[in-house]
Design a protein around this nucleic acid. Sequence first.
RNA 1: UGGGGCGUGGUGUAACGGCAACACACCGGCCUUUGGAGCCGUGGUUCUUGGUUCGAAUCCAGGCGCCCCAGCCA
Length: 563
Amino acid sequence: MTDETPKPTDFIREAVAEDLRTGRFQSVRTRLPPEPNGYLHIGHAKAFLIDYLVAKEFGGALDLRFDDTNPAKEETEFVEAIMEDARWLGIEWEKVIYSSDFFELLYEWAVELVKKGKAYVDDQSPEEVSRNRGTLTEPGVESPYRNRSVEENLDLLERMKNGEFPDGSRVLRAKIDMAHGNMNMRDPIMYRIIHEPPHHRTGRKWCIYPMYDWAQGQNDAMHGVTHSLCSLEYLDHRPLYEWFLEALEIPNPPRQIEFARLNLNYTVLSKRHLRRLVEEGLVSGWDDPRMPTLRGMRRRGYTPEAILDFNERTGVSKSGVINSGMMADLALLEACVRDDLNRRAERRMAVLKPLKLVIDNYPDGLVEELEAVNNPEDEAAGTRSLPFAKELYIEADDFAEAPPPKYYRLYPGNEVRLRYAYFVTCTGVDKDADGNVTAVHCTYDPSTRGGDAPDGRKVKSTIHWVSAKHAVQAEIRLYDRLFTDENPDSDNFKEYINPNSLQVLTGCMLEPTLAEARPGERFQFERQGYFCADPDSAPGKPVFNRTVALRDTWAKIAQKQGK
RNA sequence: UGGGGCGUGGUGUAACGGCAACACACCGGCCUUUGGAGCCGUGGUUCUUGGUUCGAAUCCAGGCGCCCCAGCCA
């Protein structure tokens, strides 16, 4: 690992490198303990990636350990979904284990603590326990059961395990300090009694289940984790994490390191709010392309590479400003997909809001095949051929009867280039009885075939088009941010929902090569944005999701003009 | 009012006692068969006050601000 040792780029990698250098650890093993009760989102992706990349960079491994210590909250359904999403991201893990795999040993360790006089069974009701914990500024009150004999504690714990007592009647607590400034140290609960529902893996074998704090560090130690990476909210738990390990006299105990979790502006990331979006029908499901879930982003057209890049560009730190985390900019995420897709996505022509263009001096019935470049960023992507004819569709926005200042596209008298085709000059329009433009007329210059004028004259604009009789009709879904507020993650988040987050366009006209697009295939529709074929697509009837629009400097100019 | 963490352009992250850097966003310009991409440029008294030092974003002290903690959740 000598030459391979990476130069530390953040405080976590610095700490890990230091531990290896000093010999505190000989190798690196990290673990990601998702609680299997929800789908992964962009914030989880960061945590996953930190654990995975740190382990990988130091020649170690990541294990997946599902944190199933509360049977009331977990479901098997999520286990597979989490693995599927992580795999899609490119995360590799060595072992898949469960906290419940360690229930037996963990119980033995609890018995050990009882024998050492460091844990006791408390008969107080949940209300009493809560009341006697004290407050942030007042010390707690010691339980009247705190000084029971070791024998009585052992007997009671055994009977708790055997299911002799009802839920909530007793708990096992660590005997630490009821006056501690850190609330986590005020005799934290280790085991509580839960009879129902049965655990999704261990069934009815256990009637007591460990609390997070009691399970975490011990599980880490049991399976050889060296670095237990977690988010800042667990900082206050580290003294307890270390207390247990020390009380049990664990040699080479694992080390917990905390980092700022990721928040994204203009979205919500809390499990509760995400669930509400789905359950209240505010989105179509966990994979709605507007959701910040990995499934949603995947359907939207985001690539794992873009998410990896985003993760890297947001960095690792301990400055938790909002909800113990950094507030990353959605614009950065979008920049990351654009970067990736710009290099990789093939270009296609697609007219979202069609307007008919008739080339009056083009021969009736003639169809020419014109060559178009698939990706100017990647010569290897080659070219394709596009049918061209007298009647085309152009983007309604690319024509203006009365052009605003700085408008370079089609308007009466103006000449533009039809991409990869000809120069055309607008000669007039057809209108219906209400005065709406129904078609635009133009003439073309036959000498400009392919898009260059032999006399060297220039046009200020190039617009896209699709041959009317060859066009494939499609549905296109345009997405915008789900919320109008930068930080909607509060209980009244519904007030900030963006009513225009989804716009469904039907009757869009696509170039014929797009007819058989497979779900998941991504393209750049020239001058529009990046689009991904949706699973709702049928052969010959594609449906596309807009992943992200292209940067649009014209939109900014138009906005400044007050339009 | 208890304990803990964090303050660097709008946002995020660097700089490890020696000229405050990079990315995104923003604004301006160049270029362009995508108003895309690419290229160039503008923008910061490093929360504050004081101290140590030849020299402080960095070390020390005091303020201020923000975040987390009082589930038998994780």
